[in-house]
Design a protein around this nucleic acid. Structure first.
Length: 581
RNA sequence: GUCCCCGUAGCUCAGCUGGAUAGAGCAUCGGAUUCCUAAUCCGGAGGUCGCAGGUUCGAAUCCUGCCGGGGACGCCA
């Protein structure tokens, strides 16, 4: 049992210090839960006091146990060797937990750790004219959850989508437009009125690459088109914008399903001028050096130089990231800026941050690469990153559809009384929730194997498990609502399993603060799984609604507090809490 | 070769700022449904916490080295 309740720690440490006549405020951090409930509810290990007091830890524990602990919330004090164990008054504890949730209202769990601080979070950042694939799930969902968590912890959050909308690839697409008019004329039917314009663009793109192998002319044509685009040729720009626009529309429909929202969507195309200015700035600062005909900035011994301009004078994406960081800080002076990008780009970001620091930007230290591990797919029985055997990516849309379809079968089987609309709504939430949660369950740095079978099993530590638990809460509350039972403030919540749940509830704000601080949504995922597990254990042993009206009232209050905690937590992770499933 | 990340049960992972017998899920074996949804719960079996040192009263947790896996290392993003 790792649950710690921060609430009482300071008071215990302070009192211990007073009894022993020394400063013991640092002991608050050492106070934790005993390994078993028989020993007590909170525990102070006395090892650290042995040095300054020149006494054995066990003797100190004994001395402390003999002193006055006249807090209203302490029921008893005892020792177990060098440990001083406290038994808490459960009614007091219960009242406190229920009050906290009640007072929190819609904001339950919110904190002030981020008050007055602004955080910019960059995530998702897909390339236009392509589909969102499963591997985009990581950055997109981790980033959105981080934004939600940071906001909940009191920060002002700017969510930022750094769109890949520039590069020679678009020259190819523009070349296709004229060159492959016979195979697919993008003006007839016009791109905008097509059912799936992005797939059509992809098809053309693939065809272009195949054709260019035997016809090198095509590549130079593509370069010409990109030059036109760069120089602002109206014809090229107009077509590029249409491609961009249909792509964004497509992204938005999926973002909406996933509960993803951006405050700012700024494409790489936006930094054309800023990149040139950045190069000048680097020159002016005297840190731009020639190396093999290219321009680089040398950093420390450990980090290789950052390449700024190629031999042909063209800038690279790193230069774009430099310019983008400066722009972001101008637009939204931040206290922290997260880049939710895969771990493979670790060096790149160290270089970017390093160069900004060389340029004298004090806020360079506030930039943070919130890296995550790669997503691997199963290919011929082995886990590999990137693509399937055929070389094609697995589309996010398709995965969501499969998951929703499977959920639908299950929902319908379990709830024959629901109409089609309700089934559709519930299966959407369950199917999408399963996919989302699977991605946020473990620490972000770990590589994940995208195991669709496992995700679709809906068993064990999954999104549907949490949703099911939430449904149980709702089901109990629904059944009890006509009874109009009133809670007596929780004084009847004296079962061991109830104390476990009350402690769990009280920790909620701390978990959110920690998850926000570490940019680690899995802290919350793990917490919610533990909450659900503890409740389901409780549920199997105790009835909430019984003939005892007072007891029922208190237990219902507990269930309501749990429902609000789990519901809030799920929403922060972009998983929809349900009332039925 | 240099740098970064990872290494805990057969598999996938928790274990927060070091604290009392290392925990879940999956898989496996055995149980639970007159009762608030069994998408659940209970029990069994399963671990030299990669290895070796070090710091400490105490190390899965901190430090160093080694081994193993993954990734990155100038003209892609």
């Amino acid at each position: 049992m790792r649950t710690r309740v921060r609430l009482f720690r300071e008071q215990i440490a302070q009192r211990a210090g007073a009894i022993l006549d020394l400063d013991a405020s640092h002991l608050a951090d050492a106070i934790s839960d005993p390994p078993s409930q028989e020993l007590g509810d909170l525990s102070l290990p006395c090892f650290q006091l042995a040095g300054p007091l020149k006494k054995a830890p066990a003797a100190i524990a004994t001395q402390l146990a003999a002193a006055q602990w006249d807090f209203p919330w302490i029921e008893g004090v005892d020792t177990a060797g060098p440990y001083l164990n406290f038994k808490l008054r459960r009614d007091h504890f219960a009242r406190l937990a229920l009050e906290r949730v009640e007072q929190g209202g819609e904001q339950w769990g919110a904190g002030q750790s981020g008050a007055g601080k602004r955080v910019l979070v960059e995530y998702s950042s897909p390339n236009i004219a392509k589909h969102l694939a499963v591997h985009h799930l990581r950055s997109t969902m981790l980033g959105q959850a981080m934004a939600n968590l940071l906001r909940c912890a009191g920060h002002e959050v700017i969510s930022w989508n750094h769109l890949g909308d520039w590069g020679t690839g678009f020259g190819k697409l523009l070349a296709c437009w004229d060159q492959f008019r016979d195979t697919d004329n993008l003006d007839d039917p016009p791109l905008e009125s097509r059912e799936d314009p992005v797939s059509d663009l992809n098809a053309l793109y693939v065809q272009f690459n195949q054709a260019s192998e035997s016809d090198p002319q095509l590549d130079s044509l593509a370069r010409d088109w990109f030059r036109k685009l760069e120089s602002g040729d109206p014809h090229a720009v107009e077509r590029w914008q249409r491609i961009r626009s249909v792509s964004l529309d497509k992204f938005d429909t999926i973002y909406q399903r996933l509960g993803v929202h951006f405050d700012e969507t700024v494409g790489e195309s936006h930094y054309q001028d800023a990149m040139l200015e950045m190069v000048d700035q680097l020159k002016g600062a005297g840190i731009l050096e020639q190396s093999d005909g290219a321009d680089v900035v040398r950093l420390s011994e450990e980090i290789p130089p950052m390449l700024i301009r190629k031999q042909d004078g063209a800038t690279l994406y790193g230069t774009r990231d430099l310019a983008s960081a400066v722009l972001r800080h101008q637009m939204f002076p931040f206290d922290r800026c997260l880049y939710v990008v895969d771990a493979g780009q670790g060096l790149h970001f160290r270089q970017v941050f390093g160069v900004l620091k060389l340029l004298g930007y004090s806020w360079a230290d506030q930039l943070e690469h919130a890296e995550f591990g790669v997503m691997r797919l199963q290919v011929d029985g082995a886990w590999k990153k990137g693509k399937t055997r055929g070389g094609q990516v697995v589309l996010l849309e398709d995965v969501l559809e499969q998951s929703v379809q499977l959920a639908s079968d299950k929902v319908r089987a379990k709830n024959p009384d629901l109409d089609d609309d309700q089934v559709a709504q519930i299966s959407e939430a369950v199917g999408v929730g399963a996919v989302i949660f699977s991605d946020m369950k473990s620490a972000r740095r770990k590589d994940v194997n995208f195991d669709l079978d496992k995700i679709l099993s809906f068993d064990g530590e999954t999104g549907p498990y949490l949703q099911y638990t939430h449904v149980r809460f709702c089901s109990i509350l629904r059944k009890a609502s006509p009874l109009k039972l009133v809670s007596g403030g929780g004084e009847r919540l004296v079962e061991a399993e109830e104390l476990v749940l009350l402690k769990r509830i009280l920790r909620f704000p701390e978990v959110i603060a920690r998850a926000a601080r570490d940019a680690e949504p899995s802290h919350l995922s793990q917490y919610l799984l533990e909450l659900a597990g503890e409740f389901n254990t409780y549920y199997a042993q105790h009835r909430v609604i019984s003939d005892d009206a007072q007891l029922s009232g208190d237990r219902l209050a507990l269930v309501e507090a749990l429902r609000r905690t789990l519901g809030r937590g799920l929403k922060l992770l972009c998983v929809q809490p349900l009332e039925r499933m």
